[in-house]
Structure formats: C-alpha cells, structure tokens
C-alpha cells in the first residue's frame, strides 16, 4: 500500500491505496464521495467524470496514484457555498435534464468543463462534447437544453422534440 495525497473539492484528502486502485474507487470507497458513479467501468459511459487539475477525466480509467498531488473536483463540490444548486445543476432541474439520475454527475461535470472552455457553445458543440457521456434513459434533448440554458442562452425556442 502506498499513501496518496490530493486536494478534493478544496480539501486535503489522503489514504493508503494499491497500485491498481482507481481514482473512482479512491473517491468512493476511501473518501466516501459516492456521487462519482461507475457505470460501465470501461471508460465509455462518462458517469465517473471528475476534473483533475481543471480537466475532465474518466475516474474509472485513471489510477489514484496518477492523481497524487492533483486538484480534484467532483460533483460533491459543485454546489454553491450556501448549499444551493449551482447554475448548471439548477438548469438540469429546471429543464428536466435528468430522469433516473445515474449519469447526471458525469453530465454535470462534463458540462462544467465545456462551459469553462466555451462559455456560449452551440447546440452542436454541446452534443459533440457529450460524446463520451451516455444517458441510458436517452434523455439527451433536455440535458443539451439544460446546458445551453446554464450558459445563459435562450432555450425557449428549442422544441421538446
């Protein structure tokens, strides 16, 4: 076992891990941050997306030891300081951007990464960016709508389809 240390949602986090321990396992099992979901465990579905040093990664396809010393952000760190939902989370609620909710943490983290780089994406850009996030309820239209709304764009003209 090796000790790993990182910053998770602004707080110091450490634990003893094996070489093979995935970042997703460290977050969930060692840190109790179970909002990072493991859906496919093959890096295809994106439910485990977190940010490492500001960049979206799939936490099921990164070793915990690879994140040693890194700044990690998870869904648990996304709410505002007073506990209210942040702009993206609120938009998901307002526009019914979730059904069963399993993919939602990854969707919100991918959306946050997109809007950081591209504050006013087009609908096509949103859909392209979500290529690695799968919603098995197939609720994509409202997810895309929520992300466009979170970017401050008017979505009233977008049909429900």
């Amino acid at each position: 076992m090796t000790q790993v240390k990182m910053t998770v949602n602004g707080k110091a986090a450490s634990g003893d891990v094996e070489g093979r321990t995935l970042l997703a396992q460290f977050l969930r099992d060692s840190q109790g941050l179970t909002g990072t979901h493991v859906g496919c465990d093959t890096s295809q579905c994106g439910a485990c997306v977190v940010h490492v040093d500001g960049k979206a990664v799939k936490a099921c396809t990164m070793l915990a030891l690879e994140a040693d010393g890194a700044e990690v952000s998870t869904i648990e760190g996304q709410a505002n300081a007073d506990g209210s939902l942040n702009v993206i989370q609120q938009a998901f609620q307002d526009h019914h951007g979730l059904q069963c909710g399993f993919c939602t943490p990854g969707m919100v983290m991918s959306a946050a990464a997109l809007l950081k780089d591209n504050p006013k994406p087009t609908e096509t850009e949103v859909r392209d960016y979500l290529e690695g996030n799968i919603c098995r309820c197939t609720g994509y239209h409202n997810i895309v709508k929520a992300i466009l709304a979170a970017s401050g764009q008017d979505v009233s003209a977008i049909a429900a389809e």
């Binding site: 890096s43 994106g46 997306v49 960049k55 979206a56 990664v57 799939k58 396809t61 990164m62 991918s110 990464a113 997109l114 960016y129 290529e131 690695g132 996030n133």
Partner: peptide, 9 residues
C-alpha cells in the same frame, strides 16, 4: 480521437 475526457489523458 475518443471523447473530450479521453483526449485529456
């Protein structure tokens, strides 16, 4: 290549 999260790693 892949998707944005894959391209970051």
């Amino acid at each position: 290549i892949g998707d944005p999260a894959v391209r970051n790693r």
